[in-house]
Nucleic acid binder design. Structure first.
Length: 261
DNA sequence: AGACGTACCTGACCGC
DNA sequence: TGCGGTCAGGTACGTC
């Protein structure tokens, strides 16, 4: 898309998680795509108009790309928005569960957008370090699992990778955040980075909907230590524990009660 | 203020 | 084969 112009946008429903912005199709049509980037779990499409299209894929969202008009299949079920580019490509936003979202915002004001304002630092960036994390957990009575899922504390971790990181750090998801020693909090930082880097290296985790950008399945799900391994043996060497599942604020947590404290 | 529960959806899967 | 129940990778918001 980068450098090309949006010819036309077809919007097939009012919105997904929320209503689409007013006149979205008109505000996109005719605009050059200056840059594609990412912040946290949001895709950002900077446009020549000075606005940025903000996209979140939710849980089941996907952008599919058809590169040429010579072989352009009809949109399929749940293709809610189709973006036609002037290089013949068509990009469809498909989202069965409709937890995704799209919004438009003046590029210079993105930091004030309700979805982006208040997001924590990128877990792979320099701003995410021991001092930062321990300062954010100080006085917090929520379980560490909930804290790491909170995008205001660190932006980009989801349920799978929090479970995996806590296992590697030997920390129970039930542990109250403020009760962790500074040393143990510090140990979380490199572990979170390692989990994410390995998952990226493996192309992500394909449970059902997720695909890599090329449409192929990711394979990090084969490397899970705890996620979706209820009742299976813990993989810590010499640990005789087995993986338990508990529900915390509506989300499944998988952990080994023997080596995660 | 902070913690928790609920809501938003479809589809896959399971047991009956 | 079909039906009802349950669960899913996220996040905003209401309520206590």
């Amino acid at each position: 898309m980068t450098g090309y112009v949006i010819d036309k946008v077809v919007v097939r429903r009012d919105g997904l998680r929320w209503q689409f912005p007013d006149n979205m199709a008109d505000r996109l049509a005719g605009q050059q795509v200056l840059r594609l980037r990412r912040q946290s779990k949001y895709l950002l499409v900077d446009l020549g108009s000075g606005e940025t299209l903000i996209i979140h894929l939710g849980m089941s969202g996907r952008m599919t790309i058809h590169r040429s008009s010579a072989d352009m299949p009809d949109p399929v079920k749940h293709d809610h928005v189709s973006i036609y580019m002037n290089n013949e490509a068509r990009i469809d936003f498909n989202d069965a569960r409709r937890f995704g979202s799209m919004d438009l915002c003046v590029t210079d004001c993105l930091d004030d957008h309700r979805l982006l304002a208040g997001l924590g630092p990128e877990p792979l960036g320099n701003a995410f370090d021991e001092d930062y994390l321990s300062s954010r957990l100080k006085g917090r009575k929520m379980p560490i699992k909930s804290a790491l899922l909170d995008q205001k504390i660190v932006a980009g971790l989801g349920n799978i990778y929090v479970c995996e990181a806590l296992w590697r750090a030997g920390i129970s998801p039930l542990r109250i955040s403020e009760s962790l020693s500074k040393k143990r909090v510090a140990s979380l930082v490199p572990v979170i980075r390692a989990v994410l880097n390995e998952a990226i290296e493996s192309g992500g985790s394909s449970l059902k909907d997720f695909r890599k950008t090329d449409g192929e399945l990711g394979y990090f799900q084969h490397k899970f230590s705890v996620y979706d391994r209820e009742n299976q043996p813990c993989r810590t060497p010499d640990c005789k524990g087995k993986i338990a599942r508990v529900v915390q604020s509506g989300r499944s947590s998988f952990y080994c009660a023997r080596c995660q404290r």
